[in-house]
């Protein structure tokens, strides 16, 4: 559903070819030139193999539940993409996710209107991103150590707020629960939310001038600075954006489960970074797309789902998942090396 968007935007603008044959050839060439093409093919092949091995794999129910299972990871990955493109990354997203959920949940339990509580939860995420961004942008602290520190701080806030116990909200307005539990046109609302976030963020990252600056900073920070880009300010906004998306994932988790656990986002930062890298982002900055991050999340989700459907023993699952991810990224890297040479 989201797949058309980036393809059309990348493919448009070609000169009108008179010869149909030539047009088809150049279409395929342009298709393979898309950064995400290899990983898309890996996913397609994997899905075909799995569908042959297990007939339930392509059942509508299984497709919906597989997409549903990656919604939170994908939303966090969208924010992570921007941080990675700028040459940094954010290890605090998992704790921001749990913090926003428990802050909102605790306020609701205290009798506050649920939407106000959600806004405060998101504002707290924003604040966390602002602090991270200020230290990375203005004080110029290394993103690794800064966001690792913030991971501890924000996780600490979540523990202090909850005293370690999950926050269980009951009797909240149906409107709020609809976000995480409702259906729209037969598809869970969570999936619609993910679709909107991905389409909008992908469009912005490809088209908006601000986003081009992020790529510029990630490719060559000093050149970007010398050319007049306000690097520090851009970085503040980047980490606010990352934190807000993590905060949204936390709020949606609360809505889906009616429970906010202080450990809800544990390990999410590595999953999100992995999804982005699988989708073509680079740890050295300047590369990566939102659509790629979505594909990375989908690949992880498909493999996770297959491990259960194919009865892979629980002790083997982690090993198999690791191998598949390495294989996918290797294939991606090799195909691009060939193209560049």
């Amino acid at each position: 559903m989201q797949q058309q968007e980036p393809e059309t935007t990348t493919l448009e603008g070609g000169a009108a070819a008179v010869d149909q044959q030539a047009e088809r050839v150049s279409f395929i060439r342009r298709l393979t030139r898309i950064r995400e093409f290899t990983i898309l093919m890996v996913i397609v092949v994997l899905i075909i193999v799995l569908a042959v091995l297990n007939s339930t794999f392509l059942s509508p129910n299984n497709i919906v539940s597989t997409i549903l299972s990656i919604v939170m990871m994908a939303i966090v990955s969208v924010g992570m993409t921007v941080a990675l493109v700028s040459g940094g990354f954010d290890l605090s997203v998992g704790s921001v996710m749990s913090m926003s959920g428990v802050v909102a949940g605790s306020l609701v339990l205290g009798g506050m209107n649920v939407w106000l509580a959600v806004i405060i939860g998101l504002a707290a995420s924003c604040l966390s991103g602002l602090i991270t961004g200020l230290f990375i942008g203005k004080v110029r602290i290394n993103p690794f150590i800064m966001t690792l520190g913030m991971q501890g701080v924000i996780q600490g806030v979540a523990y202090v707020v909850t005293q370690g116990a999950p926050v269980s909200v009951t009797g909240v307005s149906a409107g709020f629960l609809y976000l995480g539990q409702g259906n729209l046109l037969g598809i869970p609302v969570l999936i619609w939310i993910l679709a909107v976030i991905v389409v909008v963020a992908d469009y912005l990252m490809r088209r908006a001038v601000v986003a081009r600056k992020v790529y510029y900073i990630g490719s060559n920070e000093s050149a970007a600075y010398l050319s007049g880009i306000r690097v520090a300010r851009a970085k503040i906004w980047i980490y606010i954006f990352t934190a807000i998306l993590a905060g949204i994932a936390g709020i949606l988790t609360l809505s889906r489960f009616s429970v906010a656990s202080p450990t809800a986002g544990l390990g999410m930062e590595l999953q999100a970074i992995a999804a982005c890298i699988i989708g073509g982002a680079s740890l050295s900055g300047g590369e990566g797309t939102v659509f790629g991050a979505l594909l990375g999340s989908v690949l992880v989700g498909v493999v996770d789902d297959a491990l259960v459907l194919l009865n892979v023993s629980v002790y083997w699952q982690s090993l198999v998942l690791g191998c598949v991810l390495i294989a996918a990224v290797t294939m991606d890297v090799l195909t691009h090396r060939e193209k560049n040479s």
Binding site: S69, M72, F257, V259, S261, A264, D304, D305
Partner: peptide
């Protein structure tokens, strides 16, 4: 973890 559990 709730999210991981819901998935499996």
């Amino acid at each position: 973890d709730q999210i991981k559990t819901a998935q499996v």
